[in-house]
Design a protein around this nucleic acid. Structure first.
Length: 494
RNA sequence: GCUGCCAUCGUCUAGCGGUUCAGGACAUCGCCCUCUCAAGGCGGAGAUCACGGGUUCAAAUCCCGUUGGCAGCGCCA
């Protein structure tokens, strides 16, 4: 039993993003691989953007992905609870440590307004310096502070950054990274509203929740030295850090809406399988020595290691995800595909689509189309013709296969002959049907392809589909003959 | 602007000083299978390992610089 504890800490300001899923996944895999605990914490300190709805959506998405957490919202009786930062704030958790820092003179109240700070930053930038708060409230005397309070200026608490020296991060993935302290300013740890700022809340919670390893996107790497200073100021042990590379869109810019879907929910709606998403995301920034591509979730848990995470950013490739989804669907049993499809319809609120469909027929049709399914949403258009009373004859198929100068006489002959002969066909199995069709072709001296295609279009209305004879067997004698008659009446009646 | 990170086929990547005129996967192209569409099998094309300097008997692999990309620089997280 290891005491490794990792966490995924999304802020509920929107759907769960692809990048977020990757961060969650790597934390989860790391925990599973090491026999540690995976904790879910909601960072809802941004009062204007956080919503409960969004928190719920994120939790649902995590559940769908089966990235289960050992601790998180809902486990309110655990010693680390609660798991939402605003609830923790209500308990005075952050205030306590902020006060401690102020008492030790490692932090101080700052009365500058956002506008004043903004001016400082602009000025610094104009001087080609990093935009920083200049620390002017650092040395306010008690008297001056009192004066500001009387003016009813609201204070934020700022952390007193050391102005010299360097901070060295030993990142598991990147190795040593040095930061010059003089470039960092006295950042806000408590907002004027009394709500903790990100860098502070994050450190306090990671400490209290006994997080041992922080795995996150490398967009956080420059926050790390600030956080390390807080750990040190409070006399806390700094956890291990691992910063993973970012996921970018096709143009090399950070993945965003204009690159296509970014929310997991959208992938779910398209009919991607959770394991395809997980497998694909695992491949983005992580690899095995033999470049294995397809993994079960079990294998991933077994083989994952932070050490084998890459350092360069990767571009999200929808084509490869789509391929993987097809692979995952093909690896399912027909019964599983059926269940997946039904669940997906339910999720989409579209159960009525299959209301009139015969379940057994649907299952058989699914077997015939199995290899062709790339997305769950493809299924309806792949099998719907099995269930329609009135075949939807595609114009192009009819024109080419039934009514062209070259084919119309042959098609008519094949169809009329078939109605007559198929009625007497005792064994309606794929094998005997094929024998029938080949015999007919030989007898009338027609190319087998022409026989096959005529029948195919007559009974399905289209040129592509499952193997013709399997399809006929599944439809059954009665329906096949019925459909051929419909075609004859529609296209060849005189 | 400042700071940091990154740099192998179009894309994801293997590679951690010699066994590599760089291997796998997706995409792409061709062939085979075949009643169609897929799936599958086989094969092709595709990377002067961003560029320039070092170090070394030997570098994609180590060091430095240049260029490019990305990220951060909030009372956002």
């Amino acid at each position: 039993m290891s005491d490794i504890r990792v966490r995924f800490a999304p802020s509920p300001t929107g759907d769960l993003h692809i990048g977020g899923v990757r961060t969650a996944l790597f934390n989860w895999l790391f925990a599973k691989n090491k026999g540690g605990k995976f904790i879910l914490r909601i960072e809802d300190t941004d009062k204007t953007r956080s919503t409960e709805e969004s928190a719920k959506v994120i939790l649902d998405a995590m559940k769908w992905l089966e990235l289960g957490w050992d601790e998180g919202p809902g486990n309110e009786n655990l010693k680390y609870a609660p798991y939402c930062q605003m609830e923790r704030k209500e308990r005075g958790i952050y205030r306590k440590y902020a006060d401690e820092l102020v008492a030790k003179e490692l932090a101080y109240p700052c009365y500058c307004t956002p506008e004043e700070v903004d001016v400082m930053r602009k000025k610094a930038q104009a001087d080609k310096l990093p935009p920083k708060y200049d620390g002017r409230c650092r040395h306010l005397t008690p008297g001056q502070r009192k004066q500001k309070e009387i003016e009813r200026r609201k204070a934020v608490i700022r952390f007193k950054m050391s102005r010299s020296g360097t901070t060295v991060l030993n990142d598991i993935i990147r190795g040593g990274v040095e930061f010059d302290n003089s470039l960092l300013d006295d950042f806000v740890i408590m907002k004027a509203s009394g709500v903790p700022a990100y860098n502070f809340a994050c450190v306090v919670d990671d400490y209290l929740m006994e997080i041992t390893h922080v795995l996150r996107g490398d967009d956080h790497i420059s926050n790390t030295p600030r956080q390390m200073h807080i750990y040190n100021a409070l006399g806390w042990k700094v956890p291990e850090f691992a910063h993973m590379s970012m996921i970018l869109g096709a143009d090399g810019a950070r993945l965003s809406k204009r690159h296509g879907h970014t929310s997991v929910l959208e992938y779910r709606k398209e009919g991607y399988l959770r394991e395809a998403l997980i497998n694909y995301l695992a491949l983005l920034g992580w690899s095995t020595e033999d470049s294995q591509q397809i993994f079960t979730t079990e294998e991933l848990k077994q083989k994952f290691s932070v050490e084998r995470c890459g350092i360069s950013p990767s571009i999200f490739d929808p084509a490869k995800l789509l391929w993987l989804n097809g692979e995952k669907i093909r690896s399912k049993t027909p019964q599983q595909v059926y269940e997946l499809f039904i669940d997906w319809l339910k999720y989409m609120g579209n159960e009525k689509l299959t209301e009139t469909w015969d379940v057994e027929l649907l299952k058989k049709a699914l077997i015939l189309e199995h290899d062709k399914i790339k997305l769950l949403k493809d299924i309806p258009s792949l099998v719907d013709f099995f269930f329609t009373k009135n075949v939807d004859y595609k114009e192009e198929a009819v024109k080419k296969t039934l009514l062209s100068e070259k084919s119309k006489d042959i098609a008519k002959l094949v169809l009329t002959e078939s109605v007559a002969r198929l009625s007497n066909q005792r064994n309606f199995s794929a094998v005997s049907l094929e024998q029938y069709a080949r015999d007919l072709a030989a007898e009338k001296n027609i190319k087998t392809g022409q026989v096959f295609h005529s029948i195919r279009v007559a009974i399905s209305g289209r040129m592509q589909g499952p193997g013709l004879f399997q399809m006929m067997e599944v439809m059954g004698k009665e329906d096949v003959i019925r459909r051929i008659n419909v075609a004859i009446n529609k296209f060849f009646q005189k």
